[in-house]
Nucleic acid binder design. Structure first.
Length: 430
RNA sequence: GUGACUGUAGUUCAAUCGGUUAGAGCACUGGAUUGUGGUUCCAGACGUUGGGGGUUCAAGUCCCCUCAGUCACCCCA
Protein backbone atom coordinates (compact mmCIF):
# COMPACT_ATOMS: atom_id res chain seq x y z
CA UNK A 1 0.00 0.00 0.00
CA UNK A 2 1.48 3.28 -1.10
CA UNK A 3 1.32 6.21 1.31
CA UNK A 4 -0.69 9.01 -0.29
CA UNK A 5 1.32 12.24 -0.46
CA UNK A 6 0.05 15.48 1.04
CA UNK A 7 -0.92 18.28 -1.34
CA UNK A 8 1.93 20.10 -3.00
CA UNK A 9 3.24 23.14 -1.19
CA UNK A 10 1.67 22.22 2.13
CA UNK A 11 3.30 21.19 5.38
CA UNK A 12 2.34 18.46 7.81
CA UNK A 13 2.63 19.82 11.31
CA UNK A 14 4.11 16.95 13.29
CA UNK A 15 4.44 17.81 17.00
CA UNK A 16 7.97 19.24 16.69
CA UNK A 17 6.95 21.67 13.97
CA UNK A 18 3.66 22.39 15.72
CA UNK A 19 5.55 23.27 18.91
CA UNK A 20 7.63 25.75 16.95
CA UNK A 21 4.51 27.18 15.31
CA UNK A 22 2.92 27.69 18.72
CA UNK A 23 6.09 29.35 19.97
CA UNK A 24 6.07 31.70 16.98
CA UNK A 25 2.38 32.57 17.31
CA UNK A 26 2.69 33.09 21.06
CA UNK A 27 5.50 35.55 20.40
CA UNK A 28 3.45 37.34 17.75
CA UNK A 29 0.48 37.64 20.13
CA UNK A 30 2.70 38.89 22.96
CA UNK A 31 4.01 41.66 20.73
CA UNK A 32 0.58 42.64 19.45
CA UNK A 33 -0.83 42.84 22.96
CA UNK A 34 2.12 44.93 24.13
CA UNK A 35 1.24 47.36 21.36
CA UNK A 36 -2.44 47.28 22.35
CA UNK A 37 -3.70 45.72 19.11
CA UNK A 38 -6.95 43.75 18.99
CA UNK A 39 -7.24 40.39 17.27
CA UNK A 40 -9.59 39.94 14.33
CA UNK A 41 -10.36 37.15 11.87
CA UNK A 42 -12.09 36.81 8.50
CA UNK A 43 -13.48 33.93 6.43
CA UNK A 44 -10.92 31.54 4.97
CA UNK A 45 -12.56 32.09 1.58
CA UNK A 46 -14.09 35.18 0.00
CA UNK A 47 -15.93 36.14 -3.16
CA UNK A 48 -13.40 36.06 -5.98
CA UNK A 49 -14.32 39.65 -6.89
CA UNK A 50 -12.70 41.24 -3.89
CA UNK A 51 -9.30 40.04 -5.12
CA UNK A 52 -9.73 40.64 -8.84
CA UNK A 53 -11.24 44.06 -8.20
CA UNK A 54 -8.11 45.18 -6.47
CA UNK A 55 -5.40 43.59 -8.57
CA UNK A 56 -6.90 42.71 -11.95
CA UNK A 57 -7.99 39.43 -13.49
CA UNK A 58 -4.58 37.88 -14.10
CA UNK A 59 -4.23 37.45 -10.33
CA UNK A 60 -6.70 34.60 -10.64
CA UNK A 61 -3.89 32.30 -11.79
CA UNK A 62 -2.38 32.59 -8.33
CA UNK A 63 -5.62 31.92 -6.48
CA UNK A 64 -7.28 28.74 -5.37
CA UNK A 65 -10.70 29.34 -6.87
CA UNK A 66 -13.87 27.27 -6.85
CA UNK A 67 -17.52 27.58 -7.68
CA UNK A 68 -19.84 26.92 -4.75
CA UNK A 69 -23.13 25.05 -5.05
CA UNK A 70 -24.98 28.29 -5.65
CA UNK A 71 -22.80 29.05 -8.68
CA UNK A 72 -20.81 31.80 -6.95
CA UNK A 73 -17.09 32.14 -7.74
CA UNK A 74 -15.06 31.96 -4.55
CA UNK A 75 -11.36 32.02 -3.70
CA UNK A 76 -9.29 30.84 -0.75
CA UNK A 77 -7.80 33.98 0.74
CA UNK A 78 -4.29 34.81 -0.53
CA UNK A 79 -3.89 37.78 1.81
CA UNK A 80 -5.79 39.55 4.56
CA UNK A 81 -5.80 43.16 3.41
CA UNK A 82 -8.89 42.91 1.14
CA UNK A 83 -10.89 41.24 3.92
CA UNK A 84 -9.67 43.89 6.33
CA UNK A 85 -10.60 46.73 4.00
CA UNK A 86 -13.99 45.11 3.37
CA UNK A 87 -14.73 44.68 7.07
CA UNK A 88 -13.61 48.18 7.98
CA UNK A 89 -15.53 49.66 5.04
CA UNK A 90 -18.67 47.75 6.12
CA UNK A 91 -18.65 49.47 9.51
CA UNK A 92 -18.63 52.91 7.88
CA UNK A 93 -17.62 55.53 10.40
CA UNK A 94 -18.81 53.56 13.43
CA UNK A 95 -15.44 52.06 14.36
CA UNK A 96 -13.47 54.05 16.93
CA UNK A 97 -10.39 55.47 15.23
CA UNK A 98 -7.63 54.72 15.04
CA UNK A 99 -8.36 51.03 14.53
CA UNK A 100 -5.41 48.91 15.73
CA UNK A 101 -5.96 45.33 14.62
CA UNK A 102 -3.83 42.24 14.20
CA UNK A 103 -4.47 38.82 12.75
CA UNK A 104 -2.57 35.57 12.47
CA UNK A 105 -3.99 34.01 9.36
CA UNK A 106 -3.65 30.89 7.26
CA UNK A 107 -3.31 31.91 3.60
CA UNK A 108 -3.25 30.16 0.23
CA UNK A 109 -1.53 31.01 -3.02
CA UNK A 110 -1.41 28.74 -6.02
CA UNK A 111 2.24 29.18 -6.98
CA UNK A 112 5.20 27.14 -8.02
CA UNK A 113 6.95 26.70 -4.74
CA UNK A 114 10.58 27.32 -3.89
CA UNK A 115 12.60 28.16 -0.82
CA UNK A 116 10.56 30.20 1.63
CA UNK A 117 7.44 30.02 -0.51
CA UNK A 118 4.68 27.50 -0.06
CA UNK A 119 1.10 27.25 -1.21
CA UNK A 120 -0.24 27.27 2.32
CA UNK A 121 1.37 29.50 4.93
CA UNK A 122 0.68 31.85 7.81
CA UNK A 123 1.08 35.57 8.15
CA UNK A 124 1.03 38.04 10.97
CA UNK A 125 -0.77 41.23 9.91
CA UNK A 126 -0.75 44.43 11.95
CA UNK A 127 -2.69 47.42 10.67
CA UNK A 128 -3.58 50.88 11.89
CA UNK A 129 -6.54 52.45 10.10
CA UNK A 130 -8.00 55.92 10.43
CA UNK A 131 -4.82 57.88 11.08
CA UNK A 132 -2.74 59.68 8.49
CA UNK A 133 -0.18 60.67 11.11
CA UNK A 134 3.38 59.53 10.46
CA UNK A 135 3.28 58.42 14.09
CA UNK A 136 1.16 55.48 12.99
CA UNK A 137 3.86 54.42 10.53
CA UNK A 138 6.47 54.74 13.27
CA UNK A 139 4.35 52.67 15.65
CA UNK A 140 4.13 49.81 13.15
CA UNK A 141 7.82 49.89 12.27
CA UNK A 142 8.61 49.79 15.98
CA UNK A 143 6.17 46.91 16.36
CA UNK A 144 7.73 44.83 13.60
CA UNK A 145 11.18 45.37 15.14
CA UNK A 146 9.92 44.35 18.58
CA UNK A 147 8.31 41.30 17.03
CA UNK A 148 11.69 40.25 15.65
CA UNK A 149 13.43 41.01 18.94
CA UNK A 150 10.89 39.03 20.91
CA UNK A 151 11.92 36.00 18.87
CA UNK A 152 15.53 36.51 19.90
CA UNK A 153 16.76 38.24 16.75
CA UNK A 154 19.07 41.25 16.99
CA UNK A 155 20.32 44.11 14.88
CA UNK A 156 22.94 41.71 13.54
CA UNK A 157 20.21 39.51 12.09
CA UNK A 158 17.87 41.95 10.38
CA UNK A 159 17.41 45.48 9.20
CA UNK A 160 14.39 47.59 8.28
CA UNK A 161 14.73 49.61 5.10
CA UNK A 162 12.38 52.51 4.64
CA UNK A 163 11.42 54.66 1.71
CA UNK A 164 8.35 56.42 0.37
CA UNK A 165 6.37 56.20 -2.83
CA UNK A 166 5.49 59.86 -2.47
CA UNK A 167 9.14 60.81 -2.09
CA UNK A 168 10.06 58.88 -5.22
CA UNK A 169 7.40 60.69 -7.20
CA UNK A 170 8.67 64.00 -5.92
CA UNK A 171 12.18 63.07 -7.01
CA UNK A 172 11.07 61.87 -10.44
CA UNK A 173 9.20 65.14 -10.99
CA UNK A 174 12.20 67.14 -9.79
CA UNK A 175 14.55 65.52 -12.29
CA UNK A 176 12.00 65.82 -15.08
CA UNK A 177 11.05 62.19 -15.62
CA UNK A 178 7.77 61.82 -17.58
CA UNK A 179 4.89 60.26 -15.62
CA UNK A 180 4.49 57.30 -18.00
CA UNK A 181 7.94 56.08 -16.95
CA UNK A 182 7.05 55.74 -13.23
CA UNK A 183 5.41 52.32 -13.30
CA UNK A 184 8.09 50.49 -15.35
CA UNK A 185 10.79 51.99 -13.18
CA UNK A 186 9.05 50.77 -10.02
CA UNK A 187 9.02 47.28 -11.51
CA UNK A 188 12.67 47.50 -12.49
CA UNK A 189 13.69 48.81 -9.07
CA UNK A 190 11.92 45.97 -7.34
CA UNK A 191 14.15 43.54 -9.24
CA UNK A 192 17.35 45.56 -9.08
CA UNK A 193 18.97 43.37 -6.43
CA UNK A 194 18.25 40.22 -8.38
CA UNK A 195 19.73 41.17 -11.75
CA UNK A 196 23.23 42.10 -12.86
CA UNK A 197 24.33 45.70 -13.27
CA UNK A 198 24.55 45.19 -17.04
CA UNK A 199 20.98 43.94 -17.26
CA UNK A 200 19.85 46.81 -15.08
CA UNK A 201 21.60 49.36 -17.28
CA UNK A 202 20.18 47.80 -20.44
CA UNK A 203 16.62 47.68 -19.12
CA UNK A 204 16.85 51.22 -17.84
CA UNK A 205 17.96 52.37 -21.30
CA UNK A 206 14.82 50.80 -22.75
CA UNK A 207 12.60 52.79 -20.40
CA UNK A 208 14.46 56.10 -20.57
CA UNK A 209 15.99 57.03 -23.91
CA UNK A 210 17.56 60.32 -22.81
CA UNK A 211 21.11 59.67 -21.56
CA UNK A 212 21.28 62.80 -19.43
CA UNK A 213 18.08 61.85 -17.70
CA UNK A 214 19.43 58.32 -17.12
CA UNK A 215 22.46 59.83 -15.43
CA UNK A 216 20.20 61.82 -13.12
CA UNK A 217 18.24 58.66 -12.29
CA UNK A 218 21.49 56.89 -11.58
CA UNK A 219 22.58 59.73 -9.28
CA UNK A 220 19.23 59.60 -7.51
CA UNK A 221 19.46 55.88 -6.71
CA UNK A 222 23.07 56.17 -5.63
CA UNK A 223 22.04 58.54 -2.87
CA UNK A 224 22.75 57.22 0.61
CA UNK A 225 20.71 59.32 3.01
CA UNK A 226 17.81 61.71 3.07
CA UNK A 227 20.20 64.68 3.00
CA UNK A 228 21.51 63.48 -0.33
CA UNK A 229 18.01 63.57 -1.77
CA UNK A 230 17.56 67.13 -0.60
CA UNK A 231 20.85 68.11 -2.21
CA UNK A 232 19.64 66.68 -5.49
CA UNK A 233 16.04 67.91 -5.58
CA UNK A 234 15.74 70.64 -2.97
CA UNK A 235 13.42 70.39 0.02
CA UNK A 236 10.07 68.62 -0.51
CA UNK A 237 7.13 67.94 1.84
CA UNK A 238 7.67 64.15 1.94
CA UNK A 239 11.30 64.63 2.97
CA UNK A 240 10.00 66.36 6.07
CA UNK A 241 7.63 63.47 6.73
CA UNK A 242 10.43 60.92 6.48
CA UNK A 243 12.71 63.05 8.63
CA UNK A 244 9.95 63.13 11.25
CA UNK A 245 9.59 59.35 10.97
CA UNK A 246 13.28 58.79 11.68
CA UNK A 247 13.14 61.24 14.60
CA UNK A 248 10.22 59.29 16.05
CA UNK A 249 12.02 55.97 15.55
CA UNK A 250 14.96 57.41 17.45
CA UNK A 251 12.59 58.20 20.32
CA UNK A 252 11.45 54.57 20.19
CA UNK A 253 15.11 53.56 20.52
CA UNK A 254 14.98 51.87 17.14
CA UNK A 255 17.59 53.87 15.23
CA UNK A 256 20.04 50.96 15.05
CA UNK A 257 17.52 48.83 13.19
CA UNK A 258 16.36 51.22 10.49
CA UNK A 259 17.81 52.97 7.50
CA UNK A 260 16.61 55.02 4.60
CA UNK A 261 16.86 53.17 1.27
CA UNK A 262 15.36 54.77 -1.78
CA UNK A 263 15.47 51.44 -3.60
CA UNK A 264 12.59 50.05 -1.53
CA UNK A 265 9.44 50.38 -3.63
CA UNK A 266 7.32 47.30 -2.81
CA UNK A 267 6.09 45.90 -6.12
CA UNK A 268 2.38 46.50 -6.19
CA UNK A 269 0.19 49.45 -6.90
CA UNK A 270 -1.81 50.13 -3.77
CA UNK A 271 0.92 51.63 -1.59
CA UNK A 272 0.59 55.39 -1.37
CA UNK A 273 3.28 56.70 0.95
CA UNK A 274 5.88 55.28 3.30
CA UNK A 275 6.92 51.72 2.47
CA UNK A 276 9.31 49.43 4.36
CA UNK A 277 10.76 45.97 4.25
CA UNK A 278 12.50 43.87 6.86
CA UNK A 279 15.54 42.05 5.52
CA UNK A 280 17.56 39.20 6.92
CA UNK A 281 21.22 40.15 7.02
CA UNK A 282 23.59 37.71 5.28
CA UNK A 283 20.88 35.66 3.70
CA UNK A 284 20.74 37.05 0.22
CA UNK A 285 18.95 39.91 1.96
CA UNK A 286 15.70 38.06 1.81
CA UNK A 287 12.55 40.00 2.75
CA UNK A 288 10.95 38.68 5.94
CA UNK A 289 8.22 41.26 6.31
CA UNK A 290 6.97 44.23 4.39
CA UNK A 291 4.42 46.94 4.66
CA UNK A 292 3.47 50.49 4.07
CA UNK A 293 0.75 53.03 3.75
CA UNK A 294 -2.37 52.31 1.68
CA UNK A 295 -4.57 55.37 2.13
CA UNK A 296 -7.06 54.70 -0.67
CA UNK A 297 -7.92 51.01 -0.28
CA UNK A 298 -10.85 51.20 2.15
CA UNK A 299 -12.46 53.78 -0.10
CA UNK A 300 -11.96 51.46 -3.06
CA UNK A 301 -14.19 48.92 -1.28
CA UNK A 302 -16.89 51.53 -0.78
CA UNK A 303 -15.96 52.70 2.70
CA UNK A 304 -15.34 56.20 3.99
CA UNK A 305 -11.95 57.80 3.26
CA UNK A 306 -9.66 55.92 5.64
CA UNK A 307 -5.92 56.40 5.73
CA UNK A 308 -4.22 53.14 6.64
CA UNK A 309 -0.83 51.60 7.23
CA UNK A 310 0.10 47.98 7.87
CA UNK A 311 2.59 45.21 7.48
CA UNK A 312 2.64 41.44 7.04
CA UNK A 313 5.25 38.89 8.09
CA UNK A 314 5.25 35.30 6.87
CA UNK A 315 5.95 32.27 9.02
CA UNK A 316 8.06 30.37 6.48
CA UNK A 317 10.99 32.69 5.86
CA UNK A 318 10.98 33.75 9.50
CA UNK A 319 11.09 30.10 10.57
CA UNK A 320 14.01 29.47 8.22
CA UNK A 321 15.88 32.43 9.68
CA UNK A 322 15.27 31.37 13.29
CA UNK A 323 16.46 27.87 12.47
CA UNK A 324 19.58 29.25 10.80
CA UNK A 325 20.33 31.37 13.87
CA UNK A 326 19.68 28.52 16.31
CA UNK A 327 16.70 30.29 17.85
CA UNK A 328 14.23 27.42 17.83
CA UNK A 329 13.54 26.73 21.50
CA UNK A 330 13.46 23.12 22.73
CA UNK A 331 9.90 21.98 23.19
CA UNK A 332 8.71 21.89 26.78
CA UNK A 333 7.94 18.55 28.47
CA UNK A 334 4.67 17.03 27.43
CA UNK A 335 3.83 15.68 30.86
CA UNK A 336 4.82 16.72 34.35
CA UNK A 337 4.22 13.39 36.08
CA UNK A 338 4.37 9.84 34.76
CA UNK A 339 2.56 7.38 36.99
CA UNK A 340 3.89 3.82 37.31
CA UNK A 341 3.03 0.70 39.24
CA UNK A 342 5.72 -1.49 40.80
CA UNK A 343 3.71 -4.67 40.74
CA UNK A 344 0.80 -6.01 38.77
CA UNK A 345 -1.68 -5.80 41.60
CA UNK A 346 -1.20 -2.02 41.80
CA UNK A 347 -1.78 -1.47 38.12
CA UNK A 348 -5.42 -0.54 38.58
CA UNK A 349 -4.48 2.08 41.16
CA UNK A 350 -2.73 4.36 38.70
CA UNK A 351 -5.90 5.63 37.04
CA UNK A 352 -7.37 6.96 40.31
CA UNK A 353 -4.03 8.69 41.04
CA UNK A 354 -4.10 10.19 37.55
CA UNK A 355 -7.63 11.43 38.20
CA UNK A 356 -6.46 13.09 41.42
CA UNK A 357 -3.57 14.84 39.66
CA UNK A 358 -5.61 15.87 36.66
CA UNK A 359 -8.33 17.36 38.85
CA UNK A 360 -5.58 19.44 40.41
CA UNK A 361 -4.54 20.64 36.93
CA UNK A 362 -1.30 18.63 36.75
CA UNK A 363 -0.50 16.98 33.44
CA UNK A 364 0.17 13.28 33.78
CA UNK A 365 0.16 10.00 31.86
CA UNK A 366 0.61 6.32 32.60
CA UNK A 367 1.20 3.09 30.66
CA UNK A 368 -1.75 1.24 29.17
CA UNK A 369 -0.58 -2.26 30.01
CA UNK A 370 1.28 -4.02 32.75
CA UNK A 371 5.00 -3.91 32.06
CA UNK A 372 8.15 -4.01 34.16
CA UNK A 373 9.15 -0.97 36.17
CA UNK A 374 12.21 -0.60 33.95
CA UNK A 375 10.04 -0.30 30.87
CA UNK A 376 7.75 2.10 32.63
CA UNK A 377 10.64 4.39 33.49
CA UNK A 378 11.77 4.19 29.91
CA UNK A 379 8.32 5.34 28.85
CA UNK A 380 8.44 8.12 31.46
CA UNK A 381 11.72 9.26 29.96
CA UNK A 382 10.35 9.13 26.43
CA UNK A 383 7.32 11.14 27.53
CA UNK A 384 9.67 13.81 28.88
CA UNK A 385 8.27 13.51 32.39
CA UNK A 386 9.68 15.76 35.09
CA UNK A 387 8.65 13.39 37.87
CA UNK A 388 7.85 9.69 37.90
CA UNK A 389 5.36 8.68 40.56
CA UNK A 390 5.82 5.07 41.69
CA UNK A 391 2.92 3.29 43.32
CA UNK A 392 2.94 -0.12 44.96
CA UNK A 393 5.65 -2.10 46.72
CA UNK A 394 6.35 -1.98 50.43
CA UNK A 395 5.62 1.74 50.60
CA UNK A 396 2.08 1.23 49.40
CA UNK A 397 1.20 -0.82 52.49
CA UNK A 398 2.19 2.16 54.68
CA UNK A 399 0.16 4.63 52.62
CA UNK A 400 3.30 6.05 51.01
CA UNK A 401 4.15 6.92 47.41
CA UNK A 402 7.52 7.43 45.79
CA UNK A 403 8.41 10.47 43.67
CA UNK A 404 11.43 10.23 41.41
CA UNK A 405 12.92 13.40 39.97
CA UNK A 406 13.96 12.35 36.48
CA UNK A 407 16.61 15.01 36.01
CA UNK A 408 18.95 13.46 38.60
CA UNK A 409 17.16 10.30 39.71
CA UNK A 410 16.62 11.66 43.22
CA UNK A 411 13.76 9.89 45.06
CA UNK A 412 11.54 10.98 47.91
CA UNK A 413 8.81 9.03 49.69
CA UNK A 414 5.73 10.98 50.65
CA UNK A 415 2.44 10.20 52.42
CA UNK A 416 -0.50 9.88 50.10
CA UNK A 417 -2.34 12.88 51.54
CA UNK A 418 0.69 15.13 51.02
CA UNK A 419 1.12 14.05 47.38
CA UNK A 420 -0.23 17.11 45.60
CA UNK A 421 1.76 19.68 47.55
CA UNK A 422 4.97 17.67 47.15
CA UNK A 423 4.50 17.42 43.40
CA UNK A 424 3.65 21.09 43.16
CA UNK A 425 6.82 22.14 44.97
CA UNK A 426 8.97 19.76 42.90
CA UNK A 427 7.54 21.15 39.67
CA UNK A 428 8.13 24.70 40.87
CA UNK A 429 11.81 24.26 41.72
CA UNK A 430 12.76 23.81 38.09
C1' G B 1 5.38 28.64 -17.98
C1' U B 2 11.35 27.94 -18.66
C1' G B 3 15.90 25.65 -17.09
C1' A B 4 19.45 22.89 -13.89
C1' C B 5 20.23 19.18 -10.32
C1' U B 6 18.59 15.01 -7.22
C1' G B 7 15.45 10.36 -6.29
C1' U B 8 18.66 3.73 -2.64
C1' A B 9 15.38 0.90 4.47
C1' G B 10 11.10 5.10 8.73
C1' U B 11 15.38 8.77 8.26
C1' U B 12 20.53 10.49 6.97
C1' C B 13 23.75 8.43 3.64
C1' A B 14 27.28 4.20 1.33
C1' A B 15 27.79 0.65 -2.74
C1' U B 16 35.06 0.84 -7.09
C1' C B 17 35.04 0.71 -14.40
C1' G B 18 28.35 -1.97 -15.45
C1' G B 19 29.95 -7.61 -12.02
C1' U B 20 28.45 -12.40 -6.13
C1' U B 21 23.04 -12.27 -1.75
C1' A B 22 22.42 -3.56 -2.15
C1' G B 23 25.35 -1.98 3.27
C1' A B 24 26.09 1.40 7.75
C1' G B 25 24.71 5.29 11.55
C1' C B 26 20.31 7.12 13.86
C1' A B 27 15.34 5.73 14.97
C1' C B 28 12.14 1.33 15.91
C1' U B 29 11.06 -3.73 18.40
C1' G B 30 12.88 -7.46 21.75
C1' G B 31 16.65 -9.12 25.24
C1' A B 32 20.86 -8.53 28.97
C1' U B 33 17.51 -6.23 33.65
C1' U B 34 10.86 -9.82 37.96
C1' G B 35 12.22 -2.68 42.72
C1' U B 36 14.34 1.77 38.71
C1' G B 37 15.02 5.39 32.91
C1' G B 38 18.94 8.22 30.10
C1' U B 39 24.76 5.16 29.03
C1' U B 40 26.48 0.41 27.26
C1' C B 41 26.24 -4.51 24.97
C1' C B 42 23.50 -8.30 22.03
C1' A B 43 19.68 -9.65 18.67
C1' G B 44 15.58 -8.65 15.34
C1' A B 45 12.52 -6.35 11.82
C1' C B 46 13.15 -2.98 7.92
C1' G B 47 14.06 -2.66 0.14
C1' U B 48 9.97 -4.11 -6.52
C1' U B 49 17.05 1.11 -5.58
C1' G B 50 10.36 6.64 -7.32
C1' G B 51 7.54 4.19 -11.70
C1' G B 52 7.71 2.28 -16.87
C1' G B 53 10.50 0.89 -21.10
C1' G B 54 15.37 0.00 -23.55
C1' U B 55 20.85 -1.53 -24.16
C1' U B 56 23.71 -5.76 -22.04
C1' C B 57 25.75 -12.39 -20.52
C1' A B 58 24.92 -8.90 -16.34
C1' A B 59 21.83 -2.31 -14.53
C1' G B 60 21.19 1.06 -8.08
C1' U B 61 25.04 2.40 -11.92
C1' C B 62 24.26 3.59 -19.10
C1' C B 63 19.98 5.52 -22.58
C1' C B 64 14.67 7.18 -23.30
C1' C B 65 9.94 8.41 -21.12
C1' U B 66 7.24 9.59 -16.80
C1' C B 67 6.38 11.05 -11.76
C1' A B 68 8.17 13.46 -7.42
C1' G B 69 11.46 16.71 -4.81
C1' U B 70 15.16 20.78 -4.50
C1' C B 71 17.11 25.23 -6.54
C1' A B 72 17.13 29.31 -10.00
C1' C B 73 14.22 32.23 -13.62
C1' C B 74 9.15 34.35 -14.40
C1' C B 75 5.71 36.29 -10.87
C1' C B 76 4.82 38.12 -6.16
C1' A B 77 -0.88 40.81 -2.79
Amino acid sequence: MEIPPGPKGTRDFYPDLMAFQEHLFASWRRTCRRYAFEAWEAPMFEHLDIYTQKSGAEIEKQLYTFEDKGGRMMALRPEMTPSLARMVAAKGTSLKRPVRWYSIARLFRYEKMQKGRLREFFQLNMDILGSSEVGADAELIAAVIDMMRDLGLTGNDFQVRISSRTLLEECFCAIGLPKECFAPIYALLDRKNKITDEEYTAELAEIVADGQLRQRIHDLFSVRGLDGIAALTGATPEQAVLARLFTLLEKYGMSDYVCFDINIVRGLAYYTGIVFEVFAVNKGMRAIAGGGRYDTLVELYGGPPTPAVGFAAGDVVLGDLLQERGLIPPSSPRCSVFITALDDKNFDEVAPVARLLRNAGISCAFPFKRITIGKQLKQADAAGAVITLITGGDESAQGLLKLKRMRDGNETTVPRDKLLENIASMLEER
